[in-house]
């Protein structure tokens, strides 16, 4: 079982002058889990047009580091076990990205004009590579302050 880290129930606010979301974790942040938070993350992925518009802020007072949180996000989306690959949640995140043409075009510059099933499969593989490493730029939406 993977824990869901994301708690956007506390508040989701976008700052004036910016295009995107800042998600700030409330007091329940690290404890909170469950499908609602995951659905909320998918919902945000459907709304943003670039991962640069999404920022998850975690409170440093909770004694967490960026790399710890990136690792937990990775575990949610990617299974490092004997059969490595996307978890069901990871696949849902990919499908949400894929259904948001603005966002997928921003993540990959070489997607054909009208990708077919073979292309979708190729980019799912690329997404796997991205999320399997916490060093990838994809995880830059996670911030600790």
């Amino acid at each position: 079982m993977h824990q869901y880290l994301i708690d956007v129930t506390y508040f989701v606010q976008n700052y004036a002058g910016r295009n995107g979301f800042y998600v700030v974790l409330g007091p329940e942040g690290m404890r909170s889990r469950g499908p609602y938070q995951f659905a909320a993350m998918l919902s945000l992925i459907l709304r943003v047009t670039s991962m640069n518009q999404l920022e998850y802020w975690f409170d440093a007072k909770k004694k967490v580091t960026e790399s710890q949180i990136k690792e937990k996000f990775k575990l949610m989306m990617y299974d490092n076990g004997p059969n490595p690959g996307l978890t069901p949640q990871g696949l849902q995140v990919f499908n949400a990205i894929w259904s948001n043409t603005a966002l997928r075009g921003n993540l990959w510059s070489d997607i054909p004009t009208n990708p077919d099933e073979d292309d979708k499969n190729t980019y799912q593989g690329k997404f796997e590579d991205i999320v399997s490493s916490t060093n990838s730029l994809f995880y830059n939406f996670i911030k600790v302050k």
Binding site: P112, T113, N114, P115, D116, D118, D119
Partner: peptide
């Protein structure tokens, strides 16, 4: 009429 394209994907 339906044409089968094999692994060719049309762009424009």
């Amino acid at each position: 009429i339906t044409y089968s394209l094999g692994k060719v994907s049309l762009q424009f």
